[in-house]
Design a protein around this nucleic acid. Structure first.
Lengths: 297, 297
DNA sequence: TTACGCGACTGAATTATTCTTATCGTTTAC
DNA sequence: GTAAACGATAAGAATAATTCAGTCGCGTAA
């Protein structure tokens, strides 16, 4: 590469050194020898006039400039790799690939265990789950910082595609031996109890409350908290009821003294959708991953 | 480059051939010889197993696959170039750079003329203005398809930065010789007339109507349309009034038989903001451009 | 139709770059 | 304290890219 323009292939090397924290390991990952990587690094150092990585103990620690640089070039590199791979089949058994997922807390517990079980056969694949604010979901997908996001139905621009992954029925949880758990739960019983509401928002009703008010009734919410797990602990120790999605309820109830009951009326289901950037979603590696996600339902 | 991984430097060549539509011109732009570019192209052809560009007459036309590929890799390439340039000063006089702006129709007329006048001294710079739906603004900024967007104040995620560019006062327009134009416009006069409302939305009041209803009055809107220019033509030919931002009103009134009046009450001003992606905005070329935009106020 | 010129392609030789092998100096861990 | 691990460096080898020279195809003009 003539001129002062940076050799783009060095970006791969830079990214790998950053990820591996070692020239030797980076060399192995790149199928090169250690001196080759060392030379590439020195070329990068010349270009940026900065050491980029300093040796501390037995790992190469990035300098602040290196951090800033990676931060701003990594999404672009991911996109380019995706664009290039678009025209070649994806081989999950041999190709290394990191998928980054946006999952809200509850979904981590319901999705990751079966997903990792399924992906265990592919040791080269790596999953990174992040919790991101809803408002940032689309921009992160568009910026290439996130491959997929899983969430309830949200309004999105047409640059973002989505697909229904799972419809989760709402069920009611009570402690084992709860007086209302003896028979099928009816509306009078449901309304006579005190309730826990789990919501990430600071105020406003839950989706089940919308349906209840449509039926002309109202329940008495005595606790509002952010996590279902905490709510279940409360339910375990009191006579309060908790209304929540069935899948996660099943998982929690396995290790808790909790009974799951059908709700006293037809409540709306929680629709869990998979989101991805329309254009980047053409990449075979991402198409393959979508299939895996759908298969674990 | 060993292995089957694509040499990333070829992407620059690909992009340039695409842009120039000719190997010879691409070679000049890249400071290479024509056969060098030809060789690079044949390497790309091997990799993609596709001609990518076919000669038609005296220009190289991209194949459908080439189009698809450019579409998906161009944003990433732009981002990477930005990330690399981040650490080197920007020289607007000699460096080639294309800025892509998201402008809504009205803003094109108010921004582009003074902007291009200011940028005329820099022949290497290129501006592309696009109209994009509001909902897509953030994702396009995040995807690197847009460098800047200019619009009224909108809710954005913290990945998008914004800055107030200009506060535009609302004024009232009437045809020259309109009976109400003889004296200063008072509220009784304003309300006695029929009004045109310009809005990109299909329904709902304008911002001036919010203020009027706060004052306990309501005006009579008889026409709702999408463009101020069309609305002015209507105003020119009738006794209807139009309330709109002053800057654009000044521009239109120069070539129309229209009088500009102060509104009969303090109306809220239209705040025009400049938006950009927080991370990419660190690039010197973009910082420089922001300065230019602010300077033309 | 033919001649001319432009622009893309090809091949061989040269040049330049990048990789590898071998070795050294540090640092870390046992 | 010693061995192992890791990154930097030097010199030679291999590879890849560039240039030069020439061919071919196509469009344009005589």
């Amino acid at each position: 590469m003539a001129g002062n323009r940076l050799d783009l292939n060095l970006l791969h090397v830079f990214d790998t050194i950053y990820r591996e924290g070692s020239l030797t390991r980076a060399a192995k990952a790149l199928h090169l020898t250690q001196p080759a990587v060392s030379h590439s690094l020195s070329r990068l150092r010349d270009h940026f006039d900065d050491p980029l990585f300093t040796r501390q103990g037995n790992q190469m620690v990035p300098t602040p400039l290196a951090r800033r640089f990676l931060e701003s070039m990594k999404p672009g590199l991911t996109q380019i790799q995706g664009a290039v791979n678009q025209f070649h089949a994806f081989d999950p058994a041999n190709q290394r690939k990191t998928y980054s997922l946006g999952l809200r807390d509850v979904l981590e517990s319901t999705f990751l265990p079966p997903l990792m079980q399924r992906l265990y056969a592919y040791p080269e694949l790596e999953i990174a789950s992040k919790r991101i604010p809803r408002r940032d979901m689309e921009t992160q997908l568009a910026a290439g910082k996130l491959d997929f996001a899983v969430d309830v139905l949200l309004p999105v621009s047409n640059q973002t595609s989505h697909e229904l992954l799972r419809q989760d029925r709402l069920v009611v949880l009570a402690r084992e031996g709860h007086p209302l758990a003896a028979d099928a739960l009816d509306m009078d019983g449901y309304l006579s109890a005190r309730h826990v509401l789990v919501s990430s928002r600071a105020e406003g009703p839950g989706i089940e409350d919308f349906e209840l008010s449509r039926l002309g009734v109202q329940r008495s919410i005595r606790l509002r908290c952010q996590h279902y797990y905490a709510a279940c602990r409360v339910v375990e120790g009191t006579d309060m009821l908790l209304t929540m999605p069935e899948t996660y309820a099943q998982i929690i109830s396995e290790r808790a003294n909790i009974t799951i009951m059908n709700p006293p009326a037809d409540l709306p289901s929680v629709d869990v959708h998979l989101y991805w950037h329309t254009a980047y979603g053409q990449e075979p590696a991402l198409i393959w991953f979508r299939e895996q996600l759908k298969a674990i339902q």
